[in-house]
Structure formats: structure tokens, C-alpha cells
Amino acid sequence: MTKPLLSINDMSIVFTSPDEPDIEAVRQVDLTLTPGKTLALVGESGCGKSVTARAVLRLLDKNADIRTGEIVYDGRDGQVDIARLKPDSTAMRSIRGAQISMIFQEPMSSLSPVHTIGNQIDEIIVLHEGLKPKQARERTIALLDQVGVPGARDRANAYPFELSGGLRQRAMIAMALACTPKLLIADEPTTALDVTTQAQILDLLRQLQDDFGMAMLFITHDLGVVAEIADDIAVMYLGDVVEQGDVFEVFKTPKHPYTQALMSSVPQLQRKADRVRLQPIKGTVPSPKDRPVGCSFTSRCPHAFGPCAGTRPERTQVSEGHMARCHLLTHTKEEALV
């Protein structure tokens, strides 16, 4: 197995607020990213997947605090614990954008509307690589070409609003790749796109991963997209990674009731005769304030029993690399009832 590029160990993130009690948005998360592989972070809105990703870049809001745990990054200058760096320190800045970069759901919010996309990409190259503007522009054009922007030389002079949603997303990917990062964090990059454009962008990301050999942390709520692009999957619910493992294995034998329920909530492409009624998860996601004491999924779990309400399940290994946090893996119902 290749050496991990980034490992998040036992990380908890707490949001503090002067008026309200602290909210633990992410609880004891362990994730590993390896070069050339894609880890998909899946969950519904508010599950903490974006917070986790932003923590890696230390882009969290002021009131968020990485309470425990470490984010060990094995970068160009040896191992560093990102969780211990100051968000605006030189060390962090040399990692952010250059070695780890990020693409977002809405490209318009991260592209400057008053500069051409060419200039924006040039600037990053000049800043991090120290190239001359002329050389930087050549790199930019090559990059835009690589991410499939047609007529890259001319389009480099276009402003973001002159591009379609798909092209904008491509331009942002080019920008993220400007310094050949070792890790690319993609936060719902295809959610706002049409299905045909989404397929193209997913293709592109896969292609680029082959070319650059970078690791990718892919955040999405769409299980179809996960199945399409991920090597590993981590399912989050209310700040917990409830299940993680190889994508083929998790899809085939999901062990956590939440993963199972999530999968049976998605309509399958089936003929009328085979069609089964969807089995949605009952209720709604409680707010992190009202998180059940034990397993966070207790209040909606169809299998909840004895220990669930009171004890938080441990990370349990199901098979090689496949983990889940569920009491069903360590107890049988009968045993618990005794």
C-alpha cells in the first residue's frame, strides 16, 4: 500500500458561540487520503462533511475550533500537523493553494468577477512558482486546454460571467491545478451542473487524477456520483463518520443502518415490475444541539436497541479497511436485551 498523503486522526471540531452552548460539528473523525485515490465524503446537509474538508485547509470560521486530533500531511517538506499550524501562517499558506487546493460548488463565488480567468490563474502561478508573467500565461493556456476549455488562448481573456456554468467549473479546476497540488478537495463540484455537464466534469477529474497522480477528497450528497468516481467512501451523519471503507465493499454490504437507509432512499433504475417502494428514513436530521447522547442515528434508526441511546458505538472493523460505528456489529439484539 502506498504511503498516505494526509491522515486525519481523531479530529473533533467544535463551534463556539457566546449565547449558546458549544456545538460539536465533527466528532472523532479518522480519514486517510492516498495519492492517486479518491475518497468520497457523503452525507446529507449539515452532517459536517464540508466542515471536515475546510478544516484540512484551515478555512474554518473564527468560531470553529479543532479541539482534538491531528491532520498529518506528508508534503514537500516532510510531515506537518496541519491542525497545529496557524490558519494564516506562512507554512499554512505555502500548503494552501499550492499543495492542497479546493474547488467549490459555485465557481462564481471563488472566481473574481472583475479579473479575466487567465489573469487569475496567472497570478497563482506567479505567486507560488515564481514564473514570469509571459511564461505563466503559457502555463495557464496549457492548463485551460488540459481541462477542456475550447479555444483556451482566447477564453483566457474572458471574464467569469462570460462563461457557461460548465466552463466556469473547468476554469476553477484549472485554477486549482495551477500548482499541481498533491491533494484536491472538491466540495460538491457538480451539484449545480446539469447531468451531461456533470458527467463531463467527473470524467475530467478522473483524467486529471491519472495525469497528476493527486489524491482527491470529494464531497457530495449524491450516491450516484460517489459510485462513479470514488475509490473509498466515508459516510457522515451528524458529525460522525458512521461507516467508511472501499467503495465497492460499502455499496455491496453496507453495515451501518444509516448507510443502508441512504441507499434505499435513492430510486433505483428499475423496470416497473421490479420497482420497490422507497424506504425513506423516518423523521428529519436533528440539529446538532439535540444530538442523541449515544449513537447519533438512534432517533431515526429502525434497528435501535438497548445500548444505542446511551452509549456511543466504537469504530468497529468489519473487514480489511471497512469500518462502521454501530452497536449491531458488536452486540446482538438478544444479548443486549438480557
Partner: peptide, 13 residues
Amino acid sequence: ALPIADPTRRKGR
């Protein structure tokens, strides 16, 4: 283009 929630049916490039 429709992604299907099953990695074994991955459409690939």
C-alpha cells in the same frame, strides 16, 4: 450521463 448508485456499473470515461 446519469450516474448510477452502484460502483460495479461504473460507466467510466
